[in-house]
Nucleic acid binder design. Sequence first.
DNA 1: GTCTATAGAAGGATAGAC
DNA 2: GTCTATCCTTCTATAGAC
Lengths: 192, 192
Amino acid sequence: MAADTKHRILESTSELFRRHGYAGTGLKQIVAAADAPFGSIYHHFPGGKQQLCEEVILSAGRMYFDLVHAIFAAAPDPVSGTRNAFLGAAAVLEATDYVDACPIETVALEVASSDDLLRRACAEVFEEWIVGAGAIFREAGVPEAEARVLAISLINALEGAFVLARTLRSPEPLEAAAATMTNAVTAALPGA
Amino acid sequence: MAADTKHRILESTSELFRRHGYAGTGLKQIVAAADAPFGSIYHHFPGGKQQLCEEVILSAGRMYFDLVHAIFAAAPDPVSGTRNAFLGAAAVLEATDYVDACPIETVALEVASSDDLLRRACAEVFEEWIVGAGAIFREAGVPEAEARVLAISLINALEGAFVLARTLRSPEPLEAAAATMTNAVTAALPGA
DNA sequence: GTCTATAGAAGGATAGAC
DNA sequence: GTCTATCCTTCTATAGAC
């Protein structure tokens, strides 16, 4: 099944990029992990490693967007949603030996100053997240401009906490982010 | 001058790691940029790329610590210091075409799950920053536990904003972090 | 003791066998 | 059209010339 092979390659690549980054992951490792022949990469991704990476960024970015969106949708209010998002991320990180954090963060930093096509793909993903999170806060009554600042700060805190948590191998940064950001969201809501 | 050559190698490596990361930077690029013969690397760093990277992480980490410490020392109060740190970082980032952000962030993510020696070096640096920032807040009257949470959140925000700012090529994430974190610091100070 | 030349492995990419 | 075998470059690391 060609479509199945392509899917397995995307999955393996996403997984390997999380652990070793873009430059640190070889195409040979990817096909080995996906249990696919080497030629499959260039059959499904004629643009080579760059195209494969672009598709991984966009699909992983959307999956993560849906995940966070579901957490906020399941929560009774944005303050609870914020807390659940950070504490849920802390639990996943601990359970996966500090591997399973943001799927595109390492790649985003690697390509920011060296590959403009991939940088733009990451930018598209982050902008989608900002707009999505901003909409949640706006619907809760936060004014437009403030909602965007809050949304960006939420993602700032999440991405930054991932760097510290993975490096320190501790949930403490995500817990600190949960505390600080629930305060910020609380202060921004109309009732405050 | 052997000592001079070692210094040039450390400088070039730090610069190249910022742009291309650990895996994306070759030792040949490093000696070319440092205008040094290839053998110099293994003369000054018998442990090879890993040892070179470790020294870069520790020295760059301490330089960045001193920089941020100086910004807070020059500010009249921690709230101004927080604002100056984020807006100053935004200015530097714009002036350097979005290259000159945190010197160890990309490497920290690359090695977090693949090289425990280097992960520990990054962890040592981050922990120093947390303790240093915590001391500033504690001296301003914030209780011990809250000061540490605030310090971690400050670094969370800075690191996260660097990821978004470099990817989006915009100072907006650092400006949003400045707004949110000055609020958080203000709320934590005794006068609030 | 400084540096060059090269080894040996792994990288991305491709040509062509089947 | 699927996959294997190979190409050429680049990587880290080392051996040995001077």
